[in-house]
Structures are given as C-alpha cells and as structure tokens.
Design a protein around this nucleic acid. Structure first.
Lengths: 376, 376
DNA sequence: CTGAAAGCGCTAACAG
DNA sequence: CTGTTAGCGCTTTCAG
C-alpha cells in the first residue's frame, strides 16, 4: 500500500517489467502505471548523439577522451551530455570492449565489520580507485559454503580480479578461472589445491618475537591460547611459539598450549581454568584479537591484570589506553591490501610470473603488559 | 620485466587487446603472446548450447530456473554447464532484461575502516545478499568532491540503488537519478536540496540522555566537545546538549562548548586547555568516537581519568575494559544498514511513498565513567 | 515445450 | 577527423 502518482491510497497488485498493476481503493479504478515515465527514460549514447547532431561514435570518442575530435564537436557533445544528465553505461561498454574488463574487483574478507578486514578493505579501495576500479566486498564468516557462493556471484559479475581470504578446505575450483586469466590473489591465508599469488603476515616470526620477548622478561611458564587448528594463521602462530620455547631450551607442557578457541567466551573460560591451577602461567600469549579480548576480561575479573604478562597477536584500538597498555604483535592490513592490488594490476597488465608469496612483516609494539616481570 | 610462457626474462613492450608484445632479452626474439589461449576462452551460453545440442534459449531457461523444460533437457544442459565451468554473465543479461537491473547496490560510508561504517557495511551486505544483490562500497572521507566522483562511478555501473552518507553541501545533483526511479537512501546525515528516504540516529535524544545523566550525577560544569559545525550530527548533538542544560536551568558559558574538533589531536589539546583553567569542568560529553579517544588520552595524561566524568557519543570496542569503563551513547549501525536496504527494496518493488525519515533510537550504556560524581 | 530472430548500449573495425 | 556497420552475451518476442 502506498501512493502512486496522485492516487492517495493505492494497493499494489503486481509488477511486470517496467509496469505495475495497482488498484485505487477509493475509486476502485485499476491502474497500470509505468515505473519510469518514458520522458525520464535513461538517456543513451544515441540520445546524446541525436541532441548534439553528431554520430554515435563521436559521442563515444568524447566520453572516452579519444583524440582526433575537433574542439567545437567536443563542446557540442559535452553540452548534450550535461543537459541530458547522461552517464555512460560501463557494463554495455565492457561487453563489447576487447578484454571485457568490468573495472570491478571482488574482495572476500573474514568480516567487513572487524577492524583487520576493514583496514584491508580500505587499502584495497584506495589502491583500486587509482585505476578507477570499484570493489565488491563480501564477508566469509569462515564459512566454506559462503566462499563458494560469493566467488560464483563475483565471477558472474565478471570481476577483473579476485582478492580473497579462504574458508573452504580447497580452492582448486578456481583453477579454470585462473587459466582464463583472471588475476587471483589470496590474502591472510594461503590457498590449497591451486598455485596463486599470496600475501600473508609473518605469523611465525611474530609469534617468535612475542615469545622471546616474554622469555627475556624472565617468564618460563608461558601459556599460548590459539584459534581452531584448521585455520592457517592459528597453526603458524602456535608453531612460532613452540619454536621459540624450544630454542630457549624450555620444555612446553600440555597445559601450556590451548587451542580451538573460536570466540571470546571460550578464551575467557580457558584463562579462568588456567588461573585456577596450582602452577598457573606468569605470562600469556594470545594468538588472536578476539581471544585477547576474552583474556583481558578474565585477567581483570581475577584481579591479575597488573601482574600477569600478556602479548596479543594483532593490534586493536584502545590497546594503549588500557592499564597496563597491551603489548601486541601488529600486522599490517593496509600493506596487505595494497600489495594484493599491486599483484592484481600486474596480472591485468599481462605481467605473468610464477605465483609469488609475499610475507608482510609483523612488529612488536611494547605498551606495558608484555613487559611485566614474573611475580615469584 | 617478468617471465612469459617459458621465456625466462622478457620485457613487456606493449599490450593491445588480448595480445601482448614483448621482447626476449637473451635471444632478442620478438614475442606476440595471447593473454588467454583461445582454448580457454570463457564459455558463453552459445558454447553450452552447442555442447548440449540444444538451442541457446533452452540454456537460458535452465540458467534462470524457468519452468517448461523437460527434466532430461535440464540434465543435459546442466552437464554441459558443469563440464565447461560456465558462469552466466550477469551484465550481459541485465543489459537486455527489462528494467536493466544489475543486482548491485552502491554504498557510500564515511570510511570502511572505521567501526561504525564497518557495521553499517556488514548489515547492508547481509540484507542485500538475501536478494542476491552485491554491494559496491566506497569511503567518502568527508570530501565533497569524492562524493560526486563516487556517485558518478556508481551510476555508470547502473547500481539498482544507492545508500549513502553525505559530504557535499547539496545532493540536488541526484534529482534526475531519483526521477529515473533509482532508489536513493541517505544514512547518518540527511540530504540537502533533494527529498529522499533518510535513516539517522536520534542524535538530539542521545545527547539529551547523556547530558541529563551527567546532571543527575551532580555535575554542573559540563563541557561539550564536538566535531565541525558543517556536519549535521555534530550540530544535532550540540543542540541536544544545550537543550538539556537549559531544561535543567543551567546556564552554559562560552568555554563549555568547544567545537570544530576534527581529530583526536585537536580533542586532546582542547581537554588539556580545559583542565588548565581555574574553573575546569567536572564532566565531559564527547560528541564523537575519535574525540572520545583524544579526551581519554588527555584525562589519563593529566591523571584525572578516575575523577572526571565522561560520556562519549558512539560506542567503541574495549570501552568496558578501560578503567573506569566508558559510558557511551550507543548508536545502532546495523539497524541503520538494515533499514536502509529495506527502503531500497521497497523502491525496487515499485512501492512509492513520499520520502520517509527514520530515526533510529540511541541508548545509554553505563559503564562507570559517566557515573563518577563531581569532586568538589 | 523449444528455437530463431531481434536488439539492450556500447565499442571495434573499417570506410569515407 | 567523422560516421556506418556488425556484434559483445544475453533476454525478449514470437513462431513453430
């Protein structure tokens, strides 16, 4: 129910193409209404050509800034474009244009609402924008089926390139797309079953850095809290932790490694359990943002926030304003996004190299929590 | 420079359409290489039809789930689709289809990397996804020229609808687009010079809530720190503050209202100055996220974090883990995004009503900082 | 139920 | 320098 073209209360019965069928519920009059009046039909290049009194190809030349059009012609065409509020259809153009470029990129991230993905998103937008590419962004939520659906959705839209993190166990289904020349760049996690450009953080290096930092501060009983083992980054960070402990000659006992933590609540419970033990850890290395959040709540609730050392993988807003400030291993999401787009551009420019894996450095930002010394 | 098809070091000279011209710098051989081998040409509906031994229209029917195709035919077609890894081109389809729907939405937010925009983005993605619409997202950075450019970019892509916040002083340039039937929905800030659906937060109500909360706690010398006055939300929140103060019978002196604060550094300096005064405020109401951040740093640096009351407009991650927890006026970005898409869908369905402004409630979340009592 | 022909808005190729 | 023609991959229309 709503108002259509002067009929105060009309009930929508059906729509068909450009038309809608409605009934005026005071006069019982049947209404067939065009959704857009023909007078306001979206103008085409032909309309512009007719108004300017030139051939359609001349309009095309002006729109695409091609040379060899005389200035007065250009003027007349631009006048017509302005007065009709004409915007050329990119889709129609790229359909005919050789290469069929759509000037669009597909970006699959974990979740556009999380700060890491948001920063990647922004960097991709900025880099892609320099060549006038627009970006389709979608969230994966670590859901394999979603990955397949969204990729398929993007391919139907003929994106010029695909920048994606993964959720499915294999990306071999993209083999044909790669052969067709679509630049494929994986971020955050490497693909399985296909060889393609990959941009990842230095997960092992960052984890080693964190662990060594805690050992240096005098800690021996350090606990590692990690995400589900199916996730590449979770495995790598755990690997870095174990490697650093081994290299320091410290044996790691079973209770010191807890993984499979997929949200803050799990992390919270894990820390509470850890602190209840006779031999509780003097330091915690959290493998991920959301885990860090759960850890912080647990430490605060137990009143040991100022005495238990903590380093979190992944920086987060407000980390420096907590008390103590939270020491983190910072990734470089903007760098990851920027480099990913560079690789896409290289592919688009026909510069084919064998698949390159770029490892983006991680850095330790000391803010206090990682510098606390053991209490005993 | 890179490696092309077995030539270890080749220098790219030029590209033309599907071909690239390169020179092998060891053999000086000139190379003309097809970017995509014809054998791997992207299959079209025609290819599928040929392989399945049916007419192209039958393939179209199967792809679009149209009825009146016999099951064995459907099978044969689907077999061919699978073996060719065929994905129909949405752009080609919508070019011919009546209505010319592209199944894409354009979303303009402040900055995809900021949490508010990220949440809006996510809600829009989810709601749009239910009808298989993909979303182009771009960041405005409060830049009027960017707004014009991005909107134009989106219109060239013939998005089915536009959800946008604003940066330009007027949106009257969208008049013709609206007449053509493109659903236009404004979020966070109302448009100027055009009448269209608008979804905004209850800025005044939230500001009144915050101010009354501080007054109730016993504060009289309350300072309001706001963003630049050109911004709608900044004006509204200031209006709410002044309104609540007046209603409580409190006179507001000049130093109590500081606006034009566009980043954390400005906010930091403003608070330092405020605290240096003889009569410094006992409570602060911060008009925005980034300002709150600057305020927090200043309060901490001056050691008055636990004695100066603070309420911030807009919730932020970790607010509850600070000491004291930060009391905020929370907006509902997911709600804003969801409702915006609903309005777009209504427009798309031909349900035309006069422009509706939806005000999404804001809520006070008490966490400690806003409940501190004045010290004197 | 199925297919052939026309054409969506634009650009490539070529002719003037 | 400018215009005409054909056709990108698909859906519409209409005839079998």
């Amino acid at each position: 129910m709503g108002s259509f073209r002067g009929h105060q209360r009309a009930i929508l019965l059906a729509t068909h193409g450009q038309f809608l069928l409605a009934i005026d519920n005071s006069s019982w009059e049947i209404l067939i209404i065009m959704k857009t009046p023909m007078s306001e039909r979206r103008p085409t290049m032909r309309d512009v050509a007719a108004l300017a009194g030139v051939g359609i190809k001349t309009v095309s030349r002006v729109v695409n800034n091609e040379p060899y059009v005389t200035p007065p012609m250009v003027d007349r065409v631009q006048q017509a474009i302005k007065s009709l509020h004409y915007e050329p259809s990119l889709a129609a153009g790229s359909l005919r244009r050789s290469g069929h470029r759509t000037q669009a990129l597909g970006l699959l991230v974990g979740d556009v609402a999380n700060p890491f993905s948001g920063s990647v998103n922004r960097a991709v937008e900025d880099a892609a924008g320099q060549r006038n590419l627009a970006v389709f962004t979608s969230s994966l939520d670590d859901d394999a089926e979603r990955e397949r659906m969204i990729v398929s959705e993007f391919l139907r839209r003929r994106v010029d390139g695909l920048i994606m993190t993964t959720a499915a166990p294999s990306q071999s289904y993209l083999h044909h797309e790669k052969e067709r020349g679509t630049p494929l760049v994986f971020i955050d996690r490497p693909p399985n079953g296909i060889d393609a450009d990959t941009i990842i953080s230095d997960n092992v290096g960052g984890a080693v850095l964190a662990t060594e930092h805690l050992i240096m501060a005098g800690h021996r009983r350090i606990a590692f809290l990690g995400d589900r083992q199916e996730i590449f980054t979770a495995r790598e960070r755990q690997r870095g932790f174990l490697q650093a402990m081994r290299q320091a000659g410290l044996t790691v006992q079973g209770w010191q490694v807890i993984n499979g933590l997929s949200d803050a609540t799990h992390a919270y419970r894990a820390v509470r359990m850890l602190l209840d033990k006779d031999e509780s850890p003097t330091a915690i290395f959290s493998g991920q943002n959301i885990i860090t959040y759960g850890v912080l709540r647990a430490l605060r609730d137990c009143g040991v926030q100022a005495t238990t050392a903590l380093i979190g993988f992944d920086d987060f807003p407000m980390a420096e304003l907590l008390d103590p400030g939270i020491t983190v291993i910072a990734q470089n999401p903007r760098g990851i996004g920027r480099i990913a787009v560079e690789r896409v551009f290289a592919g688009l420019d026909g510069i084919w190299t064998r698949a390159i894996t770029t490892v983006v450095p991680t850095t330790l930002i000391a803010r206090g929590s990682g510098e606390l010394r053991p209490q005993d």
